[in-house]
Design a binder for these strands. Structure first.
Lengths: 204, 204
DNA sequence: TCTGACTAGTCAATTTATTGAGTACGAGTG
DNA sequence: CACTCGTACTCAATAAATTGACTAGTCAGA
């Protein structure tokens, strides 16, 4: 039972429908959890059955109706209990890192391309998170907001996400540069050897 | 099929038994993937059935025998194919971040304690990764190693892990400080009110 | 000599996550 | 007037991860 608490924590901010939650899990909540819409709808249904959240129907004219959910007292109690329990360590999972681990056996071109793509994705995400932070703190500057603002929870997790994205971008760029340089070095070496003529042979 | 490639990538380094792999998934490989021993044994069996890895029995006197696995040509081909396919975006999952997101509704004491614990765990991990990096690059300095070393894959992913742990530690410490300060501010305010017309005055 | 930790695994049950497809309606674009 | 996009969900099948228990021998320390 893990997604359960991420959903509860997300709903602390206010009321959300399943659809809106799914969006939040793509942006803000993505800083610490990831889930697909199907999972969220299923979890919301479960949480409601157990009385940890409650929903209300909102009738809309121009769009499909929706159900907005909020955390009940039982839900807050559950969150408190969860907060007291020991956290299991965070973990990363990243296909690209898997590929880089095997970099010595994989074509550099592919890797460099993917690294630069990732770097720009991370860059875009930092911009998004930056604007999100500005919106959350309003007129106050960061220190002031953290001292006296209300609802600093989402702000703090966004700060974590921002740092993560920045680091990720930097690492991608540096790694791409390393691979590029090594590629260039090998090409140069090869051309030197072929120029030396005869049965030129590049090392593997 | 995801763990599959993480295992293949880990076995690129050399031969490992299931047991040794499990250890690697706790340290180096943990920088980009996480899995429990049971999962690894199951995945190794599957990979062997499919001919992507091959194992050989090693008889030991003083300990239980073990099976060491290595990647076959088919396995390397599979890795290449995987590297060419688009990576799904990385994601984080962290209970502690979930708790912090709901910080406004949760007792600060608990959170501060967990944040400081995490910070020291992260600190320990940075030390571990640092020594791992030194071991990998041997006599060379980092830039030199990345230019001319062999097997830079694991090195590069460790660099990512190191950056992650450092950031994590810094964020934990800062977040703990923020929560502590807010707690202090609230306590002060309360004591001013009870003392009635006291000396100090806490800001709004 | 008992205890607990380390090596090296296996088995089964359950919970979670992913993949893929489908419904329904309105608004805006070409 | 067809087409796609966005809102708001649902259902089912499969794959992957977690939990928990279990075997069995070695070695070091109390």
């Amino acid at each position: 039972m893990a997604l359960r608490h991420a959903v509860l924590a997300a709903l602390v901010d206010g009321e959300y429908s399943g659809y809106q939650l799914a969006k939040a899990f793509d942006i803000g909540v993505a800083n610490f959890w990831h889930a697909l819409p199907q999972q969220l709808y299923a979890e919301l249904a479960k949480l409601e059955r157990e009385g940890l959240i409650a929903g209300r129907q909102v009738v809309q004219e121009t769009r499909p109706n929706k159900r907005l959910f909020h955390v009940t007292d039982a839900g807050f109690a559950e969150l408190e209990a969860f907060a007291t329990a020991t956290s299991k360590p965070s973990f990363i999972r990243d296909d690209l890192l898997v590929k880089i681990h095997a970099a010595d056996r994989i074509d550099s071109g592919t890797l460099i391309e993917q690294l630069t793509d990732r770097a720009s994705a991370a860059e875009a995400k930092t911009a998004l998170l930056d604007s999100l932070l500005v919106k959350m703190r309003g007129a106050l500057d960061e220190d002031e907001f953290l001292r006296s603002g209300t609802r600093i929870g989402p702000y703090l997790t966004c700060l974590r996400g921002l740092a993560f994205e920045r680091e990720h971008r930097d690492w991608c760029l540096r790694t791409a540069a390393v691979l590029r340089e090594r590629g260039a070095a090998r090409t140069e070496q090869r051309s030197v050897r072929t120029e030396e003529g005869g049965t030129a042979r590049a090392e593997s």
